[in-house]
Amino acid sequence: MNLPFSQEQFFEVFAAYNLALWPAQIALNALAMAMLAVVLWAPRRAGRLVSWGLALLWTWQALAYHLAFFWSINPAAPFFAAVSLVAATAFAWQGGIRRALQFQPGLSVRSVAGLIQIVFALLIYPAIGAYIGHRYPASPTFGLPCPTTLFTFGLLLMAAPNLPRIVVLAPLAWALIGSTAALALGVNEDLGLVVVAALGVYMLLRRSAPTGDSPQLPQP
Rank of each mutant, 00 (worst) to 15 (best):
L3F: 12
L3S: 03
F5N: 03
Q7W: 03
F11N: 01
V13I: 15
A15V: 02
L19R: 14
L19A: 08
L19M: 12
A20K: 05
W22T: 12
W22L: 10
P23K: 02
N29G: 08
N29P: 00
L31E: 12
M35E: 10
M35D: 03
L36I: 11
V38I: 15
L40T: 08
R44P: 12
R48N: 00
L49C: 04
W58M: 03
W58R: 00
W60Y: 14
Q61M: 13
L63G: 08
Y65D: 05
L67A: 02
A68R: 01
A68V: 10
W71M: 09
W71C: 00
P75E: 14
P75Q: 12
A76L: 12
P78W: 01
F79R: 00
F79L: 14
F80P: 09
V86K: 00
A87K: 03
T89F: 07
F91P: 04
A92S: 12
Q94P: 01
G96C: 01
I97M: 11
A100Q: 14
A100I: 03
F103Y: 08
P105I: 02
G106V: 02
S108H: 04
V109W: 07
R110C: 01
S111G: 15
V112F: 15
L115Y: 13
I116L: 14
L122N: 02
Y131W: 15
H134Y: 07
Y136T: 01
P137N: 03
S139D: 15
P145Q: 09
P145G: 08
C146H: 04
T148K: 13
L150G: 13
F151M: 10
G154A: 08
G154P: 06
M158C: 13
A159G: 05
P161A: 10
L163W: 06
R165Q: 13
L169W: 09
L169Y: 07
A170Y: 04
P171M: 05
L172I: 07
A173K: 00
L176R: 05
L176S: 07
L176D: 03
I177T: 07
I177Y: 08
G178S: 09
G178T: 05
S179N: 05
A181C: 08
A182H: 03
A182S: 11
A182R: 10
L183A: 14
L185S: 03
N188G: 09
E189Q: 15
E189L: 06
E189T: 11
D190H: 15
D190S: 15
G192T: 01
G192W: 07
G192Y: 04
L193A: 09
L193V: 02
V194Y: 04
V195A: 15
A197H: 09
A197P: 02
G200K: 11
M203Y: 06
R207M: 07
R207K: 07
A209E: 14
T211A: 11
T211Y: 09
P215S: 01
P215I: 13
Q216R: 15
Q216C: 07
P218V: 12
Q219M: 10
P220Y: 07
